[in-house]
Amino acid sequence: MKFITFILSLALIAPAYSSDEKSAKELLLNMAEAVHNRNFDASFVVVKGKSMEPYRWLHAKQGETELEHLSLLNGAGLEIIRIDDQVTYFEPQSAPYSIATDSIAGPIPEVLFKNIERLNQEYDFVLGGKGRIAGRPAQLVRIESKDEYKFNYWLWIDAESSLILKSAYVNHNGDMLEQLQLTHISVTEEPAPLLLEMLNKEFPTPLPSDAIAQKTDNLASNNWQIGWLPDGFSLLKSDRHKLDLNNELTDYYLYSDGFVEVSVFVQRPLPGRRPSGALSSGATTIYVHNAGSFDVSVVGNIPASTAKTIAESVARPL
């Protein structure tokens, strides 16, 4: 009898625990699911230091097809359209092109809508306090870097709909470097007509993803040795190509730890005695290192000190 009571009490307590506090990871997984399955129309702004970028973000699920549209509303603009696993970028300075991928590379790190287990090794998931964001009750989830070489990322998730309401890159002093804040969101039963219209459009055909990967293998350049990167970063791509804007030739390396991307450029040095130094805009750091016979530039959402160390570790192979 005692045993049965014990079992019963366990059964009663267990759900009480689980419904009380969801773990940070569960909340993130719920958020990813909500973002993929709901029809919503949201507006948000990204604040980087003194500059601000407003976006509109629409998402719908029509049958088994996911439709997503993200557009930058200021300046020349940028339109990103996703239909299931094809993402098309419309930019003012180049012809539209498509990539075979199932998430938009926008201001919110893509991995958050995907498998965040990937980040376990380098980041901790911590539950923060509750608050009110965009007029709705929200729960803070902090993604904290395990070392000081990367920024932390904080997210506020809607307690009811599980959708993201706010997020920020936070440095290790607790300063918010780049904030994303929803100003409006409406969740609807029916997909927005604008998104359904997309189904009737033709988009450029993307290169198959294997082709991109193979191309990298062929072009893997052993021109430079990059001596140091924070733990968890792996090389995704390396090649030599010309930059679009100024036609300069560069040796290019793309690294990622699953959360942020880091680009390393090695180029012919510019004339004149250029000092090494960093620039930053929001969470994005650009570190320009003058190594004498070549220039190294590191770009990514990483602290300036990390970018500096990476840039200075680049050397000619022995």
């Binding site: 990298t216 995704l236 791509k237 804007l245 290019y252």
Partner: peptide, 20 residues
């Protein structure tokens, strides 16, 4: 050059996820 680098980084980052 810096402008070109930032733009290039933004573009390359778009394929990062599918590459990974």
């Amino acid at each position: 050059r810096i402008g070109a680098l930032v733009l290039e980084h933004q573009r390359q980052a778009r394929v990062a996820y599918s590459l990974e």
